[in-house]
Structure formats: C-alpha cells, structure tokens
Amino acid sequence: MPPRRGLSATLAFLRKRTRIGFRRSSSSVVTALQMTVGAVGAYAFAEEVLGHEGPLFAATSSMIALGFSRDPRVRRVLEVAVGCTLGIAVGDILLTLFGTGLWQAALVLFVSILLARFLDSGTIFTTQLGLQSLLVVLLPAPDGGPFTRSLDAVVGGLFALVITMLVPRDPRREPKTDVRGLLGELSYVLREGAVALRESDATRAWHALVRARATHSTLEGLTTSMRSAEEVARISPAYRRHRDELGSLRQAVGFIDLAVRNSRVFSRRLTSVINHAALTDEAIEHLGQALEDAADGVDLLSRALSGRDATERSLNLRQARIELAAVADQLHPEPLHIRRLEGEGLVLLLRPLVVDLLEATGLSHEDAAAFLPRL
C-alpha cells in the first residue's frame, strides 16, 4: 500500500474512533456522575459515620451496582453484598483449616469459584466471592474484623439503590431503543425476502435468513434491558407511572420474539422455493407485495412501541394493526395466485408470523387469527 494511502486510511480510522468515543462518552455523562457520587458518598459514609478505615469495598460495590452493565441493579447489589459476605466466611473457614500461604490461597480461590458457580450463575457474584475469600487468606483483617468489608459492601449497594430511586433516568429508553433495532431488522428481512422473490435470487433470501438469525443477541439484550427497566420503575417513585407501559411493552416483546423466529423459518423455506422455481410470475408479484406490506406494518409497529408521546404511540399502533390485518386477509393461496404445494407451504409459514405481529399490537390471539382467511 502506498504511504499516502496508508496515512489516509489511518487518519480516517482515527477520525471514526474519535467520533465514536465522543458519542459514547457524551451518552455516559449521567451514569458516570451517578457512579462518582455513589462511590464517593458510600466511602465517606462508611469512613465518617461507621468509623471504618479505608472502606474501599463501599466505593467499589457502589460502582459495580451502578455500572454500565444492563443487569438489574437490585440483582447486582445482592450479588456484591452476598458474594462479599459468603466469600469472607469461606475464606475464614479454610484459613482455620489450612493456615496461610500461597498454596492455601490457590486452594481457597479454586474452591470459592466452584462454590460460587454452584450457587449462582452471576459473574459479579463469582468475582466477589472469590476475591473476598482470597483477600481473607492473603491480607490481615481490618479493624473491626473481616466482616467489616461485608458491611462496607452493603453500604455501597444501598447508596447505589438510593441513587437509582432518586436520580431521574428514564427506564424506558434502552428497551425502546432495542425494540426499534429489533423491528428494524425484522422489516429488513421481510423486504429482502420480497426482493429475493422478485429477482429469483436464492442467495439474497439466504442472506436474509442469516440476518434474521443474527438477531439472537439483540433479543437477549432486549430481555435484559426490559428486566432492568421494570425493576427501576418498581423501586423509583419518579417512574412508577410507567409500569403499565413497560408491562405492555414486555408483552409485545414476547410476540415480536415469536415473529422473528418465524421469519427465520420463512426465509429458509423461501430459499428452497426460489431454488425450485415453484411460483408463477403472478404469484411472485402478489406474495412480494404482501411481504412489503408486512414490512410497512412492522415499521409502524416500531414507531408505536418506541415512541414517547402517548397520542402518537396510539395512532401508530392502530395504523400498524390496520396494515397488518390487511396483510393477514390476503394470506390464502387463491388470492395470491399460488397453485403449487411449495408455495402453499410458504403461505402457511407466513400466516403465524403476521398473527404474532398483530398480537404485538395488543390484540388477543383469537382476534388476530380471525383476520386470516379460512383454508
């Protein structure tokens, strides 16, 4: 590569990284402020009020509980406090049995990690239990006994919970962002399927399948952010009024999950149908239009579930229901001009996907299925 081109590529990379870094930092200001106040406040309380010398675990436990992880904060606080206490207990027991030394420390750490994994799958719980048991063996106990550290961890966790309750931070933001991203992917998969069908491009249909399969991590992140958001709405007085909205969003997410799973099955079957040239030109046009209309309904559903204004959300939700109901009404081989068995199977796979989307708009299963023509 010529030196000038290499320099241009390096500068472009640095500009991109700088832009991403600034965006990430600017979106983290509130969380960073919460972590700073929580850590310093917990340390000062444990030192000045409780009289503990160098209560580092008060500061660290508060930072862990308030950190950038999406795991629910109450769970993080419990993992820190219980892991810290249990780790000290395990370390003391093993210290009494085997004494101090490097091989004893290795044994304590190994046993503590396995015990933590036996008791709970949480990463923070395992880290805290292993760390505390190791420190008990390697370091002298602080004034007040080894369980002083456990009390410090509880103090830090309580400070984190208080900040969560009192500092405004809309719990709906992350799950709504995740829902918008997930529905955007589903819309893309449906539109790619329509294009693949019209161009008889099985490779493009396969790429849509790969894209649908790649949403698994997004679904997992959405589940975690929903759990965290509902927890914040439950413990924070400022956001209790959003509990019903979050409950409705959780219900919709369950049906969206089913729709995404069905889209994978549909895309895989579409690849086979294209390879076997199982549809007439007329059937291709009608089915492709149905897929595009379904994608339009998904876009409306995305705007409805991710919007902040209640009136706008209601209007988009109603319009999405109308659009998806119109798609459901077409899902019969005859109006789609489908004659062969392969095409009929494709329609049968698309029907539950559209029903799932209609249920995500708030309809019951019976009402959503009623839009489908009888086979």
Rank of each mutant, 00 (worst) to 15 (best):
residue 308 R to E: 14
residue 256 I to S: 08
residue 189 V to S: 02
residue 98 F to L: 12
residue 172 R to L: 07
residue 201 D to I: 04
residue 296 D to C: 05
residue 263 S to W: 02
residue 273 V to N: 00
residue 6 G to W: 10
residue 17 R to I: 11
residue 67 G to P: 07
residue 128 Q to G: 03
residue 165 M to Q: 05
residue 28 S to T: 07
residue 72 P to F: 03
residue 240 R to L: 06
residue 230 E to M: 15
residue 322 I to Q: 13
residue 262 N to A: 14
residue 274 I to T: 06
residue 217 S to C: 05
residue 350 L to E: 10
residue 75 R to Q: 15
residue 205 A to G: 05
residue 46 A to T: 01
residue 128 Q to V: 04
residue 71 D to E: 15
residue 117 R to A: 09
residue 151 L to P: 04
residue 94 L to D: 08
residue 250 R to K: 11
residue 193 G to N: 06
residue 59 A to V: 09
residue 324 L to R: 03
residue 224 T to H: 08
residue 213 R to W: 10
residue 372 L to S: 05
residue 37 V to K: 00
residue 78 L to K: 10
residue 243 R to M: 08
residue 121 S to F: 11
residue 326 A to F: 07
residue 215 T to D: 01
residue 12 A to Y: 06
residue 245 E to I: 09
residue 326 A to V: 08
residue 266 F to Q: 00
residue 75 R to M: 14
residue 113 I to G: 10
residue 344 E to C: 11
residue 256 I to D: 10
residue 109 L to K: 07
residue 246 L to R: 01
residue 239 Y to S: 05
residue 32 A to R: 08
residue 134 L to N: 06
residue 359 E to D: 03
residue 300 L to N: 08
residue 194 A to T: 04
residue 19 R to D: 12
residue 235 I to L: 02
residue 200 S to P: 09
residue 22 F to S: 08
residue 92 D to R: 12
residue 170 D to Y: 01
residue 237 P to R: 01
residue 331 L to W: 00
residue 374 R to S: 12
residue 142 P to S: 02
residue 239 Y to N: 02
residue 179 V to M: 15
residue 101 G to F: 05
residue 261 R to H: 14
residue 171 P to N: 02
residue 223 T to A: 13
residue 7 L to N: 08
residue 78 L to H: 10
residue 29 V to K: 10
residue 232 V to L: 11
residue 351 R to I: 04
residue 8 S to K: 13
residue 171 P to Y: 03
residue 12 A to I: 09
residue 287 L to V: 02
residue 285 E to L: 02
residue 210 V to I: 11
residue 69 S to E: 09
residue 236 S to R: 02
residue 189 V to G: 02
residue 291 L to T: 01
residue 145 G to I: 01
residue 271 T to W: 08
residue 262 N to F: 10
residue 274 I to S: 03
